[in-house]
Design a protein around this nucleic acid. Structure first.
Length: 876
RNA sequence: GGGCGAUUAGCUCAGUUGGUUCAGAGCACCUGGUUUACACCCAGGGGGUCAGGAGUUCGAAUCUCUUAUCGCCCACCA
């Protein structure tokens, strides 16, 4: 075996082996199902740290379930990511000199599919490097046939139930992608821009009314100027008009209590086409809607001036024009919230538009109840509030998008009538029935040009992956899925909607639990991004530290819901751990068996102790799993393996230099290690598989990935307690050596001060030998003689003295013991006070009182020992 | 503007229904150690008025109130 573990040499080998054995594939059977659906990454995406974290967690859970003998099924797939992918394709085409507007829908889609075929799904292959044990035979795509059918079915079903409608409303328009966006796709951020004070001449009077606006380029679309009805400054303007600068249009002054008297001059320009509030006011006052901005963000013909200029260029041009005409009073810096498109970062334009909406209110009710009652349980819990708040204030979901890459809306128009159906033929039949015209052909119908919001396919994911709209077999077995692992940032976009879809179509929750991961950030808490260059190359990390090392790094510091501040150092720790594991294996494997030997007292004691300890650790890890405290489970395991197994157990049973080991002892050590491999496997699948194969005396065809996860059982608490004290004694001896500059190899004598407890402890099977071995002692003498030249220490309530040759610094020793004594006296006094307090004794649980009594008597015993020890030292 | 959450060692975080006069890890730091698995290591060590204040309680990092700082979400203020 190599001295250093080489991850590169083994990882690909085992992944291929698992694939070959088809371990990841699952079909319904009589076992309990454990299913997870992957949050589908963008089809053109590449693996980044967020994916690594998220998918490592899913893999851990699925592997654990598999080891427990469940039917584990993790379904992978990708999302067509309508707007994001279309934007990428458009950019790619532009670089080739092709404009989207020059292409037909069919031509564009051809390009898009070609792009998808070339770049799509790369990310899934990258997940394999990470060790993801997905059922690749089930790999799905949100636009594949089954998923597309589900989308159409869902749309038609909602329409037939009256939960879907077309409406003319103010929407969020992305002028760059030239599509409408849902509220959830608009990100609001504080930005500083200018607030322009512009004066409008009052018609027929040589006087002006000054308004404040952040959007002077919409002045051409003004339909009125509004003031508050109770504003004394403007009561005289009732019935008057003002003249819009630049275009000289006459518009009324209206009175509406929406206006805030305090703000600016108390006068507000009303542009119903470009502001949601202005639109509402416009409706109340029956104002004209003048749309001065085109879909691409340029100024429209209706504006009459600056036609064709981009809206931001126009803003500057308007400013200049207003300045020249003397209408610009002044400008000031102004910080306000600006909405930008999540995907293109373009400033969103409010726009009046006819779109398809899902009526959410009826869908929200069961979905809200499910989470409030923990039928769908959130980890961590605090995300419930966020969810609840959103659900209680839910608004209708705009689902149509003016894009080509996506599911085309199954709605056909004929004579102003809309026919919603799963196929054009059905729509035609509907149209024939409705109009009575049996001569209609498909060509007479015109299908809606728009596609559906990406999330309209995503919200069906847990259902559509198991073909819930067509076949019952799989969905009845795998649904509800066991857990969803995703980031909290898409709780509304995705999680909430999946819950709604689950109840709408399956009448059941889509998943039992939701584990929200945090965001992966860098050490300065910045989001990982390409621009900042702070996003490590995921595959490079795997190459450098091994997939196991990286998985360790991702997990060792990522509590559910909390952000993960990623540093490479974490992966380094993972790699070091791999190395530690590897070397422990080398040690065991390297032991020569000495046939003349049987396991000795220490070996037997060590085995019993370690077995007991293992049980408590498994129980603890199980508990951590149940609460999705994976990071803690891993930390527990790490420290158990490193400290208890390597530093203590192996040292206990290690044969003296040059000697062989008893066959039983070696076998036992290997059995423990084999079990460790299984328990650690979900976290570090590759190295555990490799080591398991080296150490396990196995039947042909067995693998760690399919081994049996151990059950927690009760450990022998007496042995546990004895060995823990022995460890304490050994640590004390080492400490004294260290402080007194004694060599580690030098054998010392240990004196144990005679008492009944001491005799029981030291004479317990194997204890003395163990202390002698690990403490590197000549011997242990139980004695009543207290005139020994040495340094004393107390373990629990027993006193020991480490005999040393050189003379002691008695003054320093006394000082230390006195300090310790003072502390113990205070300690005992404080507990004594507590115990003499009736309210404590009466109110505190019996177990607490009992443990306080024990502490009190132990403390008293230590005081006695210390007092005598100080006397003894003084007498030396 | 409304809501939620955080504040514990130099750094990142645990601390699970309130129960020690040792508040735990990892990293970092300090001391000593290497022919006998591992320097990607071993044996030890220092370091914290649990953000400040007040309260409830026999007992508070943990519960309540308050102040401060930070973070996040939601919302149509020009």
């Amino acid at each position: 075996m190599e001295a250093k573990y080489n991850s590169k040499a083994v990882e690909d080998k085992w992944y291929a082996h698992w694939m070959e054995k088809n371990y990841f594939h699952s079909e319904p059977d009589e076992r309990e199902a454990y299913s997870i659906v992957i949050p589908p990454p963008n089809v053109t995406g590449i693996l980044h740290m967020g994916h690594m974290l998220n998918n490592t967690i899913q893999d851990i859970l699925i592997r654990k379930a598999r080891l427990e003998g469940k039917n584990a099924c993790w379904v992978p797939g990708t999302d067509h990511a309508s707007i994001a992918t279309e934007a990428k394709v458009v950019r790619m085409l532009r670089e080739k000199g092709i404009k989207k507007s020059d292409l037909t829908r069919e031509e564009f889609l051809e390009h898009a599919f070609a792009w998808k075929d070339e770049y799509g799904g790369k990310i899934l292959n990258q997940l394999k490097k990470l060790g993801a044990s997905c059922d690749w035979e089930r790999t799905a795509f949100t636009m594949d046939e089954t998923r597309s059918e589900a989308v159409i079915q869902a749309f038609v079903d909602l329409y037939n139930k009256g939960k879907l409608y077309r409406g003319l409303r103010m929407v969020n328009w992305d002028p760059e992608a030239q599509t409408v966006l849902s509220n959830e796709e608009v990100l609001h951020k504080e930005e500083t821009s200018l607030l322009y004070h512009v004066k409008y001449q009052i018609e027929g009077v040589n006087d002006y009314l000054t308004i404040a606006t952040t959007r002077p380029e919409t002045i051409m679309g003004d339909s009125a100027v509004a003031v508050h009805p109770d504003d004394p400054r403007y009561t005289h303007l009732k019935g008057k008009n003002v003249i819009v600068p630049m275009v000289d249009r006459v518009i009324p002054i209206i009175f509406d209590d929406y206006v805030d008297i305090e703000f600016g001059t108390g006068a507000l320009k009303i542009t119903p086409a470009h502001d949601i509030n202005d639109y509402e006011i416009g409706k109340r006052h029956k104002l004209e809607v003048i749309d001065v901005i085109n879909d691409d963000g340029t100024i429209s013909d209706a504006a009459k001036v600056f036609v064709g200029k981009d809206r931001f260029e126009a803003r500057i041009l308007v400013k200049i024009a207003l300045k020249e005409s003397g209408n610009l009073v002044d400008t000031e810096n102004y910080t306000h919230s600006v909405g930008r498109s999540e995907r293109t970062n373009a400033v969103v334009e409010p726009k009046l538009s006819l779109q398809w909406y899902v009526n959410m209110e009826s869908l929200a009710k069961p979905a809200l109840d499910a989470v409030v009652s923990d039928e769908v349980e959130f980890f961590p819990k605090n995300q419930k509030n966020l969810y609840k708040h959103w659900m209680e204030n839910i608004r209708d979901w705009c689902i149509s998008r003016q894009l080509w890459w996506g599911h085309r809306i199954p709605a056909w128009f004929y004579n102003e009538e809309v026919y919603v159906a799963t196929t054009a033929e059905e729509a035609l039949n509907q149209a024939k029935a409705k109009t009575g015209n049996t001569d209609l052909t498909i060509d007479d119908l015109k299908q809606d040009e728009d596609v559906l919001d990406t999330w309209f396919s995503s919200w069906l994911w847990p259902i559509s992956l198991f073909d819930g709209f067509k076949s019952r077999e799989e969905i009845d077995y795998y649904y509800p899925t066991s857990v969803l692992v995703t980031g909290w940032d898409i709780i509304f976009l995705w999680v909430a909607r999946m819950v709604m879809a689950g109840y709408e179509w399956e009448n059941k929750r889509p998943f039992n639990d939701v584990y929200f991961t945090g965001m992966v950030r860098d050490k300065q808490r910045r989001k990982m991004s390409k621009q900042l260059g702070n996003s490590p190359d995921a595959l490079g990390l795997i190459d450098q530290y091994g997939a196991d090392g990286v998985r360790f790094g991702m997990l060792s510091s990522s509590p559910a819901g909390g952000d993960l501040l990623f540093e490479e150092k974490l992966c380094e720790q993972g790699r070091n751990f791999s190395n530690k594991l590897w070397n422990a294996l080398r040690l065991i494997e390297g032991w020569e068996i000495d046939k003349s030997k049987n396991s000795n007292q220490i070996d037997d004691l060590a085995s019993k102790w370690f077995d007991a300890k293992f049980s408590t650790v498994i129980a603890e890890i199980d508990k951590n799993y149940k609460e999705y405290r994976l990071s803690e489970a891993l930390t527990t395991l790490y420290s158990f393996i490193w400290n208890d197994y390597c530093s203590w157990y192996l040292e206990m049973i290690k044969p003296p230099y040059g000697e062989g080991i008893a066959a039983d002892t070696k076998t036992q050590a290997k059995k423990f290690y084999e079990k460790i491999c299984t328990v650690l496997h979900p976290f570090m699948p590759f190295i555990t598989e490799e080591m398991w194969h080296i150490i396990k005396e196995r039947n042909e065809g067995e693998d760690c990935i399919m081994s049996t996860y151990p059950q927690a059982k009760y450990g022998n608490s007496e042995i546990l307690s004895q060995v823990e004290q022995a460890k304490d004694v050994i640590s004390n001896i080492r400490d004294i050596r260290n402080k007194n500059g004694l060599k580690m190899k030098e054998e010392l004598s240990l004196f144990a001060i005679k008492s009944t407890e001491m005799e029981v402890f030291v004479n317990a099977e194997g204890i003395e030998a163990m202390i002698v071995k690990l403490g590197v002692l000549k011997d242990i003498t139980i004695t009543a003689d207290d005139k020994i030249n040495g340094v004393s220490f107390i373990s629990r309530t027993e006193q020991f003295i480490v005999g040393i040759e050189q003379s002691l610094d008695i003054g320093a020793e006394i000082e230390e013991k006195e300090k310790e004594l003072k502390y113990q006296i205070g300690f005992v006094a404080s507990i004594g006070k507590k115990l003499s307090n009736e309210r404590f004794v009466n109110n505190a649980p019996e177990s607490v009182v009992e443990s306080e009594r024990k502490k009190h008597s132990d403390g008293t015993a230590r005081i006695k020992i210390l007092t005598e020890e100080i006397e003894r030292l003084k007498g030396m």
